[in-house]
Amino acid sequence: MDDLIVRNVSRMIIPFIQLYGLFVIFHGHISPGGGFPGGAILGASIVLYTLAFGAEKGHQKMPHSISKWLESGAIIFYMLIGMVGIFTGYVFLTNKAAGFYMGEVGVVFSGGFIPMITLAIGIKVGSTMITLFHTMIDEEEEH
């Protein structure tokens, strides 16, 4: 896949895809979307990069040593935020009673921990998708 048009169009379009993914993630609690679609869009941008520039450059852009930390770290972050509810005397994933900042309805910084766990889910889904695709490409080259 060594095509000049594909490479240049991908280079132009990938920042907008990633910006759209981050928008979907951060507006997950006030508009359609959320962690899973936004993370899938973020992962798809790196998959497009790997398809346009080859597996070597894709691995340089997102090596497995980083994506494994992102995967595990995001879900540990989710669980730690959930644990705050337990340590303040309520159940797992207690939002308002555990003392999270609620804010006003309709702005981005509101809703307690919902933006934070949506960000964690987005990072988890995106890095899982990248890891899955890179693993399949690697196995393809061995045979």
Partner: peptide, 22 residues
């Protein structure tokens, strides 16, 4: 629109690439 966004990203994007890799 939530499901539509997921379907467009997963169904039309990532699943197709996974199938082509297989």
């Amino acid at each position: 629109p939530d499901v539509a966004m997921t379907e467009a990203a997963i169904g039309a994007g990532v699943t197709t690439i996974m199938f082509i890799a297989v």
